[in-house]
Simulated assay, not measured.
Amino acid sequence: MKGLNWRFLLITAGVLGLLAGLLPVFLGDQYLFTTLPIAMMFSSFFIVPRIKDKKLPSAVFVTLLTAVISLVVFFIYQFATLDPAIAKANLKTAMVNLPITVLIISLAGSWVFVKTNEWTEKKRKEVEAKMAAKNGDKGKDKDKGNGKTSAATKLREARGQKTYVPHATKKRYRNTKKKK
Rank of each mutant, 00 (worst) to 15 (best):
K88D: 14
A13L: 01
K125G: 07
K54H: 14
L64E: 01
I51T: 11
K54A: 14
G17C: 07
R7P: 08
R172M: 15
K177S: 13
A133Y: 00
A89M: 14
I76D: 14
E121P: 01
I105C: 05
L9P: 05
L27G: 10
K2C: 08
G160S: 05
E118Q: 13
F42P: 00
L9W: 08
G21D: 01
Y173T: 13
S150W: 05
A85I: 03
K178W: 03
N117E: 11
N5L: 14
D29H: 13
Q30E: 14
D137H: 12
V68F: 05
T120A: 09
M41L: 06
T66V: 07
M1A: 10
L27Y: 09
M1F: 11
K154I: 15
L9I: 14
K134A: 13
I76E: 15
L56I: 11
A151T: 13
A67D: 03
I86W: 08
S106W: 08
M41H: 00
A13H: 01
I47G: 01
V112Q: 11
A13W: 00
G145W: 09
T66K: 08
T176Y: 02
T66G: 04
L10Y: 04
T163P: 04
F79H: 02
F61S: 02
K148S: 11
G14R: 05
F45S: 04
L56H: 04
F42L: 08
M131A: 12
A85G: 07
L107F: 12
P24V: 05
L10R: 03
A67N: 05
Y173I: 15
M40V: 06
L10G: 03
V114G: 04
F8D: 12
I105P: 03
I51N: 04
P166C: 02
L56T: 07
K92V: 15
N175W: 07
K92R: 15
E126R: 14
D143G: 02
T169M: 12
S150V: 04
M1E: 12
V68Q: 08
L56D: 06
V96T: 14
A39T: 00
D141V: 02
F75V: 04
V60W: 01
V165T: 11
F33Q: 11
K179Q: 04
L10E: 04
K140H: 11
V48E: 03
K122H: 09
K55E: 14
K162M: 10
N135D: 09
A67H: 04
S150Y: 07
T35H: 06
K142D: 11
T66L: 09
F61M: 11
L16R: 01
F46D: 02
W6V: 15
S110V: 04
K170G: 12
M131V: 07
L107E: 09
G21L: 02
K148I: 11
I11T: 06
P24N: 06
P24G: 07
L98W: 07
M41R: 01
D137T: 14
F113P: 00
N5A: 15
G28R: 06
A132W: 13
K92M: 15
E126Q: 14
K138M: 13
G139L: 12
T169R: 12
E128I: 12
I51S: 06
V112G: 09
G147M: 05
T149E: 09
L16C: 00
L23I: 10
L91Q: 02
K134P: 10
L82A: 09
